[in-house]
Computed example of a mutant assay.
Amino acid sequence: MKSTQRLSDLTVMSADQLQEELLKLKKEQFNLRFQRATGQLENTSRVSQVRKDIARIKTLQRSKTASASA
């Protein structure tokens, strides 16, 4: 996910789209951790951006499932 993508873009996504986006971000997070461990990471702030984006998506997923069950 690009850092310019906002919360409003995520809220209009379906549950499947959110799951796909979450999978992409987790792969990116793994690659960033690997780059950090090998000393090849140049943009260190991207690690925290990805973590926050993952948290946003998980929060939206929980709120959508809670509203669907209520």
Rank of each mutant, 00 (worst) to 15 (best):
E28V: 09
L60W: 08
T11G: 09
L22Q: 04
L32G: 02
E42P: 04
R51D: 15
T59R: 12
E21A: 15
R6E: 13
K24H: 02
V12Y: 09
D16M: 12
L25K: 00
F30H: 07
D16A: 12
N43K: 13
V12F: 00
D9G: 02
R46C: 10
E20T: 13
N43E: 15
V47Y: 03
A70C: 06
D9W: 00
T38C: 12
E28H: 07
L10Y: 03
T44V: 15
S67F: 10
V12P: 07
Q61N: 06
A55E: 15
R36C: 00
A68E: 04
A68G: 05
K2P: 09
K26Y: 01
R36K: 15
Q40N: 11
T4V: 05
T59C: 07
R6M: 12
F34S: 11
A55M: 00
L22Y: 10
S45G: 07
Q49D: 14
N31P: 01
I54N: 05
E28Q: 13
R36Q: 15
T11N: 11
R6Q: 08
S8F: 04
K24N: 02
Q61W: 03
I54C: 02
S45L: 13
T59S: 11
S48G: 03
A66K: 01
A37N: 05
N31W: 12
S8T: 10
L7N: 13
S63M: 08
S8Q: 07
E21Q: 12
V12D: 04
D16F: 07
